[in-house]
């Protein structure tokens, strides 16, 4: 059970996002189960990642969130979990912390054609010795779900098993839509390659469509 302090911190983080992305507060936070509705899907969409070994805000809107003092709490849920960038005004409102690759992230946002695409920004805590690769994103008017393949980083990357980094992924969803009704967020990751994860989804989608046709 989170302590009152942590609840407040969470509420603050969620509130930050609410104004921007229209999230429904704390209940909109990540679920480990992907939503059932498939809607649209994009395999291997364009994306850009920022990794920060420091427990500081990486991407946010409005005022820079204040880091919580207790390190463990920060690890558990720092600074908002996801946000949408649906037009140039949204993009202008996004701040990016002083991390490696920040300029590239800004460029990614600015180079997006918001008449044809929406950027979804997702943040996770990831073990320091691992990285992840985005395999696909599924979305509908109310749900969004991402899928990642998790990998060990190279042997010469110095890292500790118990330490986590903050990893923020900017995903260019190939579709312009109003994200304000999105209220279900899912994300999954596993040790298979993206090729396998994508193939599995294709098979499942085909099977569902196939059974629909036969009825």
């Amino acid at each position: 059970m989170p302590s009152i302090t942590r609840r407040r911190a969470l509420h603050g983080a969620a509130a930050l996002l609410t104004g921007f992305a229209g999230c429904a507060g704390e209940s909109s936070s990540s679920s480990s189960h992907p939503p059932e509705a498939t809607g649209n899907v994009a395999f291997d969409p364009e994306s850009y990642s920022l990794r920060n070994p420091r427990l500081e805000p990486v991407v946010w809107t409005g005022e820079r969130p204040t880091p919580v003092e207790d390190e463990e709490r920060e690890r558990a849920r720092p600074w908002g979990h996801h946000l949408f960038v649906a037009d140039a005004d949204d993009a202008d409102a996004v701040s990016i912390g002083d991390v490696d690759g920040a300029a590239g992230a800004r460029e990614f946002l600015d180079a997006t054609d918001y008449d044809a695409a929406t950027v979804y920004v997702e943040r996770v805590a990831i073990r320091q010795c691992f990285t992840q690769e985005l395999c696909h994103v599924r979305w509908s008017e109310t749900e969004i779900d991402t899928s990642y393949a998790r990998y060990y980083r190279d042997a010469d990357v110095a890292c500790e098993t118990e330490t986590r980094d903050v990893l923020v992924t900017l995903i260019r969803i190939p579709g312009a839509f109003d994200p304000s009704d999105v209220n279900s967020y899912g994300s999954s990751r596993g040790s298979g390659t993206c090729e396998r994860r994508n193939e599995r989804l294709r098979r499942r989608t085909n099977a569902t469509e196939g059974s629909g046709e036969s009825r």
Binding site: R127, Q128, Y152, R153, V157, C159, E160
Partner: peptide, 12 residues
Amino acid sequence: GPDEVPNGAIRE
């Protein structure tokens, strides 16, 4: 040790 294999998870 970390000198031989810097990645702690692989080393483990």
